[in-house]
Simulated assay, not measured.
Amino acid sequence: MKIMFTPQLRADALSLSLDGDVLTVNGTAYDFGPLAEGGTLPREAVGCPLLASDVTRVGGHIMLALILPHGSDAPEAARFPQPITVTQTGPIPLPVTYAEEAPE
């Protein structure tokens, strides 16, 4: 799965995990398994409030963009996040989005 991020100053949180073609966003599972190669699922059809794009499957990879909420004091990695490719099942690590989360 290839995930791009759209950073946005807002107070929500984001937690992600992956299990095959099932992406769990803040505790809600979204199954993209039925999406065929070359297919597109419109953002509105998914019903995920943090989804920032349509969902496509290209070259066997599901591709989508998610809003990455961050605070006003967010580190550069949260304000200018790099896309990630996720291949393993489990929690997906995200950039630190609030200064108080940074390790001391």
Rank of each mutant, 00 (worst) to 15 (best):
V86H: 09
P83R: 04
P69G: 11
T40G: 03
S15F: 03
I62T: 14
V22H: 02
C48G: 04
A65R: 05
G90S: 08
S72Y: 12
V86G: 10
T89D: 13
G47P: 11
Y30W: 07
L68I: 01
P7C: 05
T89H: 11
P81V: 03
L16P: 01
L68S: 00
R43T: 13
L9W: 15
T40L: 07
V46R: 13
S53C: 01
G59Y: 10
P95K: 05
P91W: 07
P103D: 12
M1C: 07
L9H: 15
E76S: 14
P95I: 08
T40E: 10
A13E: 13
P93K: 08
E44R: 13
E76M: 13
A78R: 00
T97A: 14
P42A: 04
L41C: 12
A29G: 10
Q88R: 15
A99T: 13
T56Y: 02
A99F: 15
F5G: 00
A74G: 10
A36E: 14
G47T: 07
T40C: 08
T6V: 09
A65D: 05
S17C: 04
G20R: 07
A29N: 09
E37V: 03
V96M: 03
L35V: 14
G33W: 06
G60K: 09
P34A: 03
E101F: 09
P7N: 03
G47W: 09
L18Y: 03
A13P: 06
V25M: 05
L68Y: 00
E104V: 01
L9E: 15
M63S: 06
A13V: 13
P83S: 09
Q82M: 12
Y98N: 14
S17K: 10
I3T: 00
R10N: 15
I3N: 00
A13W: 12
P81I: 02
C48P: 06
P91A: 14
A11T: 12
S72E: 15
F5A: 00
R43K: 15
I62Q: 09
T97E: 09
D31Q: 06
T28P: 11
F80I: 11
V96P: 02
G38P: 03
L50D: 00
H70S: 08
I67F: 02
D12C: 15
I62G: 08
L14A: 02
G27T: 05
I67T: 12
Y98P: 10
I62P: 06
P69K: 09
L64N: 05
T24I: 03
G20D: 08
V55I: 04
P81Y: 00
L51Y: 08
A78I: 00
V46I: 09
G59C: 11
R10P: 10
Q88H: 13
E100K: 13
K2C: 01
P42Q: 02
G59K: 10
T40Q: 08
Q82A: 14
E76L: 14
H61V: 12
T56D: 08
G33F: 05
Q8S: 11
G71H: 02
L94D: 02
G38I: 01
D21E: 14
A77K: 02
L68C: 02
E100A: 14
G60E: 11
D73W: 08
L23C: 04
M63V: 11
Y98E: 15
K2M: 04
Q88L: 13
I92Y: 06
